[in-house]
């Protein structure tokens, strides 16, 4: 933190009430340290996380978003974290196609006992996003010529999705 001008990403963390939010509580109780970049928003279940929330966070200037829930098979609401997992996979795919660096969007499983693991995941996310600099979405598209490639790949995906496979 010595260099005040260094880029520090702003990260929104959506965490479920039962496991990951409690893991974050545990990280605190255990006085584990992680960078202060993440701002945690509590939802009852990772299944509550509407993709709109993630898009909204990016649109409002978040440099990265973390979605955290209970481990697969351990969801407080039976299996709703699987729904979060599917949404995550689709949203990540879309965001990547739209030119977002994949490092900026991350899904983490953390049980209420895994304060340590969650703290490590947050640290890793901050460290992965810091070198990327601020989210500069339209810039990415133009400068790197990603727009054409992205559109191409979206078309290909769609074609592949249309084919029925057994």
């Amino acid at each position: 933190m010595s260099d005040k001008n260094a880029f520090e990403p702003k990260i929104i963390g959506f965490m479920c009430n039962w496991c990951s939010y409690r893991a974050a509580d545990l990280a605190g109780t255990a006085r584990l340290k992680y960078p202060p970049n993440i701002r945690i928003i509590r939802v009852m279940c990772s299944g509550r996380i509407d993709p709109t929330f993630v898009l909204n966070a990016f649109a409002r200037g978040a440099d990265a978003v973390m979605v955290a829930g209970c481990h697969p098979g351990e969801c407080h609401y039976v299996d709703q974290n699987y729904k979060a997992m599917r949404r995550y996979a689709m949203l990540k795919h879309t965001l990547t196609q739209m030119g977002l660096e994949p490092e900026r969007f991350r899904l983490v499983w953390a049980s209420a006992a895994e304060g340590q693991q969650l703290a490590e995941a947050i640290t890793q996310l901050v460290e992965a996003v810091r070198p990327l600099g601020p989210l500069h979405w339209s810039g990415n598209w133009e400068e790197n010529g990603h727009r054409h490639e992205a559109l191409e790949s979206i078309l290909k995906e769609h074609e592949a999705a249309m084919e029925v496979t057994e």
Binding site: K10, I12, R39, I41, V43, D50, T52, F53, N56, A57, F58, A59, R60, G61, A62, D63, P134, L135, H136, W137, S138, G139, N140, W141
Partner: peptide, 22 residues
């Protein structure tokens, strides 16, 4: 939705939405 979207907005009060190109 409103509550959570408002929370996101508040949490990012000091962020720079122009910087992300949107």
């Amino acid at each position: 939705n409103q509550q959570i979207l408002a929370e996101i907005q508040g949490a990012l009060w000091d962020a720079n939405p122009n910087g992300n190109g949107l």
